[in-house]
């Protein structure tokens, strides 16, 4: 474990709870893409199937349980409890256009042709594009609530920190996982224009609005 990965995991945890609290407190999921949340739930479920078979540490197992539970809870709040506030008219990204190609790629490019490893690879590839429905929804509505932009900033920062973690581990531990690094770069690049808007607008107290 290194500081980049620890801060990255905490940033990821913060993002998930910022969103969960926003929906719970405001009793509304306006401006939030339910499709992205479904994809994140799929990412965690397919990635953490080794929860019971591969014990790494208490921290690792605890975080896996928290990530799965909180993301499933978010999907539950959006599609069941506060369904009336779900903005399905703007959350129209065709996620099958993400899941199918990512599933095919996971079969073709992976470290090990075993069920668990293919599912892990699918999860890594899917996570890199899972935010697209959310970014697409913001581009359609033209703006995002400030709390939603904080969520996105924490979520985007987590994988950027993981890139630093992989540089650290490469030099100090000789650890290198090409699949995770490439997917992590794609994932972080997708946030770039949001990061620009966030730093130039939200940090100065303005609302995040996309140029029409």
């Amino acid at each position: 474990m290194n500081i980049f990965r620890l801060v990255g995991d905490l940033s990821h945890l913060l993002a998930i709870f910022v969103l969960l609290l926003k929906i719970w407190k405001s009793r509304s999921c306006a401006g939030v893409s339910g499709k992205s949340q479904i994809l994140f739930a799929l990412v965690f479920i397919t990635r953490y199937l080794d929860l019971f078979t591969n014990f790494i540490s208490v921290y690792n197992s605890l975080m896996k349980v928290i990530f799965i539970a909180s993301t499933v809870a978010t999907v539950y709040l959006m599609y069941i409890k506060f369904k009336a506030t779900y903005d399905s008219n703007h959350d129209t990204f065709r996620i099958e256009f993400l899941v199918v190609p990512v599933g095919g790629l996971a079969f073709l490019v992976n470290h090990d042709f075993t069920p668990l490893e293919i599912l892990w690879t699918f999860s890594i590839y899917l996570e890199s594009v899972a935010i697209l429905p959310q970014l697409f929804m913001i581009s359609k509505t033209g703006e995002a609530e400030t709390i939603t932009s904080h969520y996105l900033f924490a979520l985007g920062s987590y994988r950027a920190l993981y890139l630093l973690n992989w540089i650290y581990r490469y030099y100090f531990e000789g650890y290198f996982d090409l699949i995770a690094v490439v997917a992590g770069c794609v994932q972080t690049i997708l946030y770039c224009d949001f990061f620009y808007l966030y730093i130039t607008k939200v940090m100065w107290g303005k609302k995040l609005s996309l140029p029409a």
Binding site: H12, N60, F67, H111, E117, W120
Partner: peptide, 10 residues
Amino acid sequence: HIADGKHDEL
């Protein structure tokens, strides 16, 4: 790739 097929990251 991680030793003995285990992924130690979240």
